[in-house]
């Protein structure tokens, strides 16, 4: 296993929620990354943000790791959940809430409901 792969594996194993993104949670540098980071921030989810723009090895390595060609990529308890489209759909359908509930990830249920109302 390459050290990049090992580094990624370690990150997703040691953090309940990890978002590989362009930019950082407070300073996203791409619309798609910003949307997912925004949802997580709004729902009060604690997550580790990994800025793939800061490390080309990670930027390419994460795509091989998950067999997924785009950024952002969300991981919950070491499992790849999806990119921006999937997380948006899951937020609006409530599946993201269920996923967090099943994995004991704390989040603000009212905030999640507000997102759905706003996008009703």
């Amino acid at each position: 296993m390459t050290d990049t792969n090992a580094q990624i594996q370690e990150t997703v194993d040691n953090n309940d929620v990890v978002l590989f993104m362009k930019g950082t949670a407070s300073m996203p540098q791409c619309g798609f990354s910003s949307r997912v980071a925004g949802v997580l921030n709004y729902m009060g989810v604690k997550f580790a943000d990994v800025n793939v723009l800061a490390d080309d090895a990670i930027r390419q390595g994460i795509k091989d790791f998950s067999d997924w060609p785009t950024i952002p990529q969300l991981y919950v308890k070491g499992e790849f959940v999806g990119g921006c489209d999937i997380i948006t759909e899951m937020t609006l359908s409530g599946e993201l809430d269920t996923l967090f509930d099943e994995n004991g990830v704390a989040y603000d249920k009212d905030a999640a409901a507000k997102i759905r109302e706003a996008n009703g």
Binding site: D67, W68, P69, V81, G82, D85, I86, E89
Partner: peptide
């Protein structure tokens, strides 16, 4: 969805 989108990619 992840499997579906992997097929598309």
């Amino acid at each position: 969805r992840v499997a579906q989108q992997r097929m598309v990619y």
